[in-house]
Design a protein around this nucleic acid. Structure first.
Lengths: 189, 189, 189, 189
DNA sequence: TATGAATGAGCATTCATTCAT
DNA sequence: GATGAATGAATGCTCATTCAT
């Protein structure tokens, strides 16, 4: 039971293994242990499961970040932790996210993308606001807006690394440091 | 004649109108004014035209930027112009680019993505290097690497705006200013 | 309640609107205000409702005729009234009848068709017999058998008119007169 | 080659064997010896072949009649021959015709039905006109219009017989005679 | 009786690709 | 190089029917 969850989980699994195009509904339902028709009781089309998957992935991202940021540490360290977390999520899920993003971009679901990312933006916004209150971030920074820039920056930086798998290990650390430095200058006093 | 070009142009046109999934080879060749079989003399599969399209789009982007940046102006102004240019390109082509990106991500062509973007990165890298030589950008900035961060940042900022078409006009300008300020602090002396 | 009736009425409604093929059981039960499973308590399959519908339609036909034939008038006038009535029924229900006929022809229910028409044939047979007793119809006419010919003739004449909606108004009257004259000669003294 | 013909013939064959509903396109193309996709080069849907089949059947009917009517004989005999021919066609094809009629009624092709029957009506019309010229048929008869009544009458008479397979042999002959007598009275001097 | 969630067999249709000309 | 008729594999989706409650 809770068939909806089972479908989403199965879809994540199968999409990861075979890619979206080559995944058949029959693959998903087989793994979910339900009948083919049952899928359509929960999602009206193959692609309609995408936003639900995206939601799950974003949830995982936020959880990962929350788990790794030490809210007692100073801002620079916290920022390092945030970068680490986002890079870590990217390493594990960027392929899946790209897949889902592509799937949503291809169909009519693109408009749901913002809603899906909203919780992530809010977390970052709160995070920055706290630092601003503490006097670490310049008063002139619009935390609401910059939160999106920060997420966009870190994610695109991570993607640039993990998209092309060249001498990773080192690359990753250098990139992280560059982003860290870039951000500190960009927003701090 | 120059059938290859005609195919690419037709593909851009049709993809834009109907989306990648719903575009049939027959649509492309009809618009290109060639026979169905001829397509396969130039591209081995439906998706194989994607990198060629991406190349064209990136070329357009660079041309747009080159045309709008006044190399005599001071860095801050130039940066404004760069942001304007990238936002402008995003406004016109982000949908197409997302589509092409999705198309390449879906198939085996993702590895070509970096090569396609390379000229763009190089231009930005040179642009920053000049400013660094002029003493405007901090010595500690790795222009090579930061060029990618900058492009990633501006593009994601633009995408956040154009993806969801809310009260654009104002939004766009505010977002541009925020990015400009963000960047100046991030990299300048 | 009286769910059986409700199902039949709903089926008539929906079949008329969407055609048999495109009508789903779910459409019928929705309109009937009952659950999907309930349908199968009254009819063993989708098509099994067809004979019931046919019965209803034939009942309506007979009622229409009875209501319009003045049994005091002379035979020629009565015949005109019969023709009018059958044409009127055809105008309103021929589409539905064709649909039901098609539905029954498509499945195993065709054999029930005669039983459904039987009351109609009997009415006509009695009608002719009376006229024969009165000396209006030739003695040599086998009323039993000719009743079917007469119904077949009038119905096919009506169908030829209403199937193709060309300049109706006039057409209808001419056709009716032709049928009337045809019949009078065919069977009267 | 002449794939269109091959498709029509195969469709007639398979529809007759399995009925329209249970016939798959794959059955038709298999018998026609062509690829599945090729079917759709000639007919846009499964049902779209119906009018083409109807045409073939009507052609056969006309051929049958022409072959059996002795244009040297007197009208009464000729009429007997016409009735024989139409009954014979009905015996062989009424099931198929009902099927096709149902198929066309079910879909959007019903409007083509008249065009398909037109040649049949014309033949009958000419036939009656000749008899009228020869003084056998009353001057007051509108041959054009009555031709359709006559065809409708004979066909419905035949259908009534062959639809319900009761003690045929005798039935058929009685019915034929009744129709013959009915018609002679209806239209002759 | 009544329900309606669940089933899963079933197939028309599409369209990228091929190849004889 | 160019053509475009022919191919046929491939699958998302539907919906009549069932059955546990």
């Amino acid at each position: 039971m809770n068939k909806r969850e089972r479908i989403i989980q199965a879809a994540v699994e199968v999409f990861r293994e075979k890619g979206v195009e080559k995944t058949k509904i029959s693959d998903i339902v087989k793994l979910a242990g339900i009948a083919q028709g049952t899928y359509y009781l929960y999602f009206p089309s193959k692609m309609a499961v995408m936003p639900a998957i995206a939601e799950v992935l974003v949830e995982k991202s936020i959880k990962e970040i929350r788990a790794n940021v030490d809210r007692e540490a100073n801002f620079s360290i916290q920022l390092t932790q945030v970068i680490d977390a986002i890079f870590s999520v990217a390493e594990n899920y960027h392929e899946m996210l790209a897949m889902v993003y592509a799937g949503m971009a291809t169909t009519e679901h693109m408009n749901e993308w913002e809603a899906v990312y909203e919780p992530f933006y809010r977390w970052m916004s709160d995070f920055l606001k706290d630092a601003q209150t503490a006097g670490t971030i310049r008063e002139s920074v619009n935390t609401e807006r910059v939160s999106k820039l920060v997420i966009g920056l870190i994610e695109s930086a991570a993607e640039q690394i993990y998209l092309y798998d060249s001498n990773r290990e080192q690359e990753v650390n250098i990139q992280k440091q560059e982003v860290h430095s870039f951000l500190l200058h960009a927003i701090c006093v």
